[in-house]
């Protein structure tokens, strides 16, 4: 075999190898890109399948009833509508649903304005090392484990809310429904909302900062050149341009707030069978209840308690997915988008 021929064969075999490598790459890429969908579908399937007995047992009362009672776990198992459950068991999750929605709503009300303003400062007002440092601190804040937030909430925030902030708000705004009344121990709705706000602020801030930095300087200068103040430029020029991404960022934070478990478990006050009476009442969120009750639920010989927790998980999952969808839908419904060169995430 001539040297040249051998060289050609070498090239061809290399070509063949690279073709196989390409097929392999495509295969791996396809599998990887399908992962989010597969994982979401699998989790949804498992959770919904796990929830079925509970759905049959409770029906709509699951979300309208406030009584959560695992029943007599050591007594007789009764049969209800074709499914087995401990005697006296009732799985009414309304308290947890309300706790989740209320605490995350408080968190958003506090976190969104703070995040947007912080993001505006990070994106437009500071620069150089200071910008890097502040951005780094914000991201660091996002990385604090939630149990640390919870501990801080119990040791520092809750006593302050119970002794200062709660009574203060009740004193000043007591005439507003839901804001008056006893401020309790500090473990409750307000403290949960505050802790959640702290936890989601860095997430929303980082997302909004990235959005604002994408706004072309030309548009900002258009506003500045007309004699608009920094705030007016932000409010009327930059935020509308990133509106779509902004709503996405808020939905992201909301999802995190609703799904947060450990910190609200620690500072929520673990309410059971009672809806919050005011801003300071103890609450439980769905995520916290799942974590809190799983241990006792596993001792239920009929497994109904576990099914009920699965239904709680399904409800939480649906809630977060729906929030995201509604947020995105809202964006498309509000005003015309045809000609808008918005920045999206």
């Amino acid at each position: 075999m001539s040297q040249r021929k051998r060289g050609e064969m070498h090239v061809m075999s290399q070509r063949r190898a690279s073709r196989w490598a390409d097929i392999g790459f495509r295969g791996v890429a396809a599998v990887c890109s399908a992962m989010p969908l597969v994982v979401l579908a699998a989790i949804l399937a498992v959770v919904v399948a796990g929830a079925m007995p509970s759905i049959r047992y409770m029906g709509w009362r699951f979300i309208t009833d406030i009584t959560w009672n695992l029943g007599n776990l050591y007594g007789a198992i009764s049969v209800h509508g074709g499914v087995r459950a401990p005697a006296g068991a009732s799985y009414g999750a309304l308290v947890f649903l309300v706790g989740t929605l209320a605490s995350s709503a408080i968190a958003l009300v506090i976190a969104v304005p703070v995040s947007v303003l912080t993001a505006a400062v990070l994106a437009y007002q500071v620069r150089g090392p200071l910008q890097s440092l502040l951005s780094f601190l914000v991201e660091l804040l996002a990385g604090i484990p939630s149990v640390v937030f919870g501990l801080w909430g119990i040791l520092v925030l809750a006593p302050w809310v119970g002794s200062q902030l709660g009574p203060g708000i009740a004193h000043l705004f007591g005439w507003v429904p839901f804001l008056g009344g006893s401020a309790g121990t500090g473990l409750g709705l307000l403290t949960s909302g505050l802790v959640l706000a702290l936890m989601i602020t860095p997430i929303i801030t980082a997302a909004v900062r990235d959005l604002l930095m994408q706004v072309p300087r030309l548009y900002r200068e258009g506003g500045i050149g007309l004699g608009l103040t920094s705030w007016e430029v932000l409010r009327h020029v930059c935020l509308p341009i990133v509106r779509e991404g902004l709503i996405g960022a808020v939905a992201l934070g909301w999802g995190r707030a609703m799904g947060e478990t450990m910190a609200v478990l620690m500072v929520g006050g673990s309410a059971l069978n009672q809806l919050p009476q005011n801003l300071y009442s103890p609450i439980s969120t769905m995520a916290a209840v799942i974590a809190n009750q799983l241990d006792s639920a596993l001792t239920d010989a009929s497994h109904m308690a576990v099914h009920a927790l699965a239904e709680l998980a399904a409800l939480l999952l649906v809630l977060t997915v729906v929030t995201n969808l509604v947020a995105r839908l809202l964006v498309h419904r509000v005003g015309w988008t045809a000609g808008a060169r918005g920045v999206r995430v």
Partner: peptide, 21 residues
């Protein structure tokens, strides 16, 4: 500066109408 820019208007190199308005 905000008052200055109300008296001294500016037109830029590229057209920059506010894209959402």
């Amino acid at each position: 500066p905000v008052d200055v820019r109300r008296i001294v208007g500016m037109v830029f190199q590229k057209p920059n109408p506010f894209p959402t308005l």
